[in-house]
């Protein structure tokens, strides 16, 4: 499994970020109404951001695979899909923990929550179909990723009329420096971590493609049957 040369640098950056983030987050001023629970926000939002980013990365990779029959696109897509589920689960676990304190319940059928859950389910379906679909499933999954990615903004923007109790994204700009800097830092750290993990997963996919080639070569050489 060959990793790109820049990979270790990214890992080191991510590790540094992960080490520094908790200190920064803890030293940030306490939010007056929510208290300590508000600190979930510092990793809930980055998880959500990465989850959605990753979904669109997956869709981009799928489009490359479908229209340009690029194998690299497919590798990118499957790696990003797995990470969408990973960060999506982080988002869906941390969110309700915050909601328990803020709303008194773990879950409400709010627009944003519904959208996030939907995205998560679509990408779980993606992984399932990939795993058990057999031949041809790669294309189907690429289609699924494209439709899934189209689904999300559609609901997200069109339901602004639907009342939402989830904090709006404008909260971010109202943070002020005290909370803004740790928040930005944790967004950055998560993004770097995402790049590192994505590259790691893609290296595995590249290695797998190489091994498959070797199998075929071995077969041609009469070593396998």
């Amino acid at each position: 499994m060959k990793l790109r040369p820049w990979f270790l640098v990214v890992v080191a950056l991510a590790a540094l970020g992960l080490l520094a983030a908790p200190q920064l987050i803890l030293s940030a001023p306490r939010e007056t109404t929510m208290g300590l629970v508000q600190k979930i926000f510092y990793y809930h939002v980055p998880s959500a951001w990465i989850c959605f980013l990753s979904a669109f990365v997956c869709a981009a990779g799928s489009a490359m695979y479908l229209f340009k029959s690029s194998e690299a696109g497919d590798r990118l897509a499957v790696s990003a899909a797995e990470l969408t589920v990973l960060f999506g689960s982080c988002m869906l676990v941390t969110g309700p923990l915050w909601g328990r304190k803020a709303w008194g319940v773990y879950w409400v059928w709010d627009v944003r929550l519904t959208t996030a859950l939907l995205l998560f389910i679509i990408f779980i379906a993606y992984l399932f179909a990939r795993r058990y679909g057999g031949p041809g499933s790669r294309k189907l999954c690429a289609g699924l990723a494209l439709f899934g990615a189209a689904d999300v903004p559609l609901i997200y923007f069109s339901v602004s009329i639907w009342r939402t109790i989830h904090p709006k994204t404008t909260v971010v700009s109202s943070l002020g420096r005290g909370m803004g800097i740790p928040f930005a830092f944790s967004m950055l750290t998560f993004t770097i971590l995402y790049i590192a993990l994505l590259e790691m997963r893609m290296a595995l996919e590249r290695a797998r493609a190489r091994v498959d080639e070797l199998h075929i070569e071995a077969e041609d050489a009469g070593l396998e049957n």
Binding site: L118, I122, L144
Partner: peptide
């Protein structure tokens, strides 16, 4: 598996 999640909206 493929259709339902997409048509949820």
């Amino acid at each position: 598996l493929l259709v339902y999640p997409i048509v949820v909206p």
